[in-house]
Nucleic acid binder design. Structure first.
Lengths: 343, 343
DNA sequence: ATTAGCACTCGGAAATGATGAGTGCTAATA
DNA sequence: TATTAGCACTCATCATTTCCGAGTGCTAAT
């Protein structure tokens, strides 16, 4: 079987995909000729469609329905059929409008970005916060809470803040804490969290630091307080997909909502995107996650300088409006990158 | 119409409610006699049921179905029919298990609490984080990010941390920032955030501080960085309510999910509970929110000392297992209160 | 190579009917 | 007088049937 599609079959396939994207109904041969200015008879189109089905680009839900694009068809569509389009002006403005840092914390900014993505795309917005461990430590601080509880605050280069409550055996004074944090800030400045972890271990082994019991304690303490959280994920606009006819049945719905409540697997998927810079698209089953059947993900990485910080994107049905959403995701990633630029 | 129910009608009403809570199906006269050891004939029960309907405790979906409790019935049920019950041992253990502070930040703790509430109750767990403004400031810190951006970190007495990025006109050195934060920490220690706000205004008016330009700037800066966020809400277990038959239809689902995506109104409802200490119950339409039709909320405040910190609870269908959930919410609130006790 | 024509398929909507849980009322009963 | 047995009636639910038409594949004509 030659996988070489003629120009005409490509046109027809494209017509079917685009029709299906808006209607969500199986597309018949007649509709193709009617709604798209092809000067061909339905019968001819039928022949072509039969070929396309055999090649795996189309599927028929049953004998006498029209045809529906397969994942393979969407893949072809985004890879070669779809030209590069620009972001529409109003969309660009809506995205820009949301881009401001001042008066918020990083978490909020990303959360809002996710909400914005969902509202612009009408699907679900998703943003994965910078993986803290890959970040450079900027500042560390101990604050004494009541009792033996100490609050440890870590600030990363990109301005995100993590804090942790640690219970200690010793009762440190505020002064102790100041001394400890000064010492550690000096010791650890400019290292990534991952490096910090190693550095602490080294230093603890190293006998020469033992001369000061307090500093030795400091090492222990900071060791405990390194973040072990998995990256934060913001998913917004889940109710948008309730509107989609393909998820109208309750069983399917349940599955999806369960999947998104358990964010772990999703993170796994998105972490893959961290490696590949730029736009990344998973269509339906391509993601190897059964819960993602019928869903596509469009992501892009955002970064400062040449440090990849995180991933953001849109999740929608496989029949999502790729032509519109891809540029949106791309543009948003660029804007967020610029926003987080800390020189 | 005497609203005085006889002992017998109360028993029957209770039987109907409890049956409906587990089955979610209209309850017929026959079922009442069968499943609950009442030595009465269905016919008698029917008469009583007719009375109860007239009094507004029951409703019939249609002529030949059984009857369904109204909000009024549930209200009577929780207020007078329902005895005080203890938390089951396994539940108590599951709640305890989740109660640990160390190695987490306050946000995480509350988030997990919400998740725990949902998993123990099988409905939705909800936790409103302490309203920062009502909290006492413990510590304030400025961290220089790139450019003219400064990260302001506020720590409250209860150990919760807020941070904010502020863009400044002046380019402060790290030393400046240390000096500024020392000054402010001294000035503001022990005040609630609300008081801090006032104090800053006073101080800024006050000419005597003007002798030091830097400190004057510090006041401005900290003023900008006071939190204006509305309180954070953690809602977990939304997929639990997908299991409930009464929400099986897609339209109803959509409404609910939309409502919870827009957390604002919910916060309004929960803020009312902040005033009344202890358990608080809204049944169905009582909350005056149309989106809450068919849903009940059980909340309790949590606090340290005699400072109310926030609200937590469970949202479920009006036919929720009150007998089980009320003690759970009560117990959880107590545990969280104890957990956050910072002496 | 394209198209008109036609028999055929099959899901979905509407119509029909049987089932049975549940009711309200009346008259008999304790 | 309160309770109950009996009975006719109601009405949602479910299964069955019927009908319709969009859409197909094939064949023969263009």
């Amino acid at each position: 079987m030659r996988d070489n599609l003629t120009e005409r079959s490509k046109q027809i396939l494209e017509a079917i995909i685009e029709d299906y994207i808006v209607t969500a109904e199986p597309v018949g041969s007649r509709t193709v000729t009617r709604r798209h200015g092809l000067s061909l008879s339905p019968a001819t189109v039928r022949n072509v469609m039969a070929d396309l089905e055999e090649m795996g680009f189309l599927a028929s839900p049953h004998t006498s329905a029209g045809r529906v694009p397969t994942d393979k068809a969407y893949r072809l569509y985004v890879d070669s059929l779809l030209g590069v389009r620009k972001v529409a002006r109003e969309e660009r403005e809506e995205i820009r409008k949301h881009c401001s840092l001042t008066g918020k914390d990083i978490g909020e900014v990303l959360h809002e970005t996710s909400r914005m993505l969902s509202s612009v795309s009408h699907y679900m917005g998703i943003v994965v916060a910078p993986h803290f461990a890959a970040n450079v430590l900027r500042h560390l601080e101990f604050v004494k809470l009541g009792g033996r509880r100490i609050l440890v605050i870590l600030v990363s280069q990109s301005g995100s803040v993590q804090n942790k409550i640690v219970e200690t055996a010793d009762d440190f004074s505020s002064n102790d804490l100041v001394r400890m944090s000064n010492y550690l800030n000096e010791l650890l400045a400019g290292l990534t969290i991952a490096q910090v972890r190693n550095r602490l271990l080294e230093e603890m082994e190293n006998a020469k630091t033992r001369y000061d019991a307090l500093l030795s304690k400091a090492l222990q303490l900071s060791q405990q307080s390194l973040p072990d959280k998995d990256s934060e994920v913001f998913i917004e606009g889940q109710s948008n997909i309730l509107e989609l006819p393909e998820f109208a049945d309750v069983g399917r719905m349940k599955e999806i909502f369960r999947a998104f409540e358990e964010k772990g697997q999703l993170v796994g998927l998105l972490d893959q995107c961290l490696g590949a810079q730029g736009i990344n698209i998973f269509i339906g089953a391509e993601s190897r996650l059964s819960q993602m059947a019928g869903l596509s993900v469009i992501t892009s990485t955002y970064m400062t300088g040449r440090n990849t910080l995180g991933v953001l994107g849109v999740i929608g049905p496989t029949r999502m409006g790729y032509a519109k959403v891809i540029p949106i995701v791309d543009y948003t990633a660029k804007m967020v990158s610029r926003l987080l630029e800390m020189e």
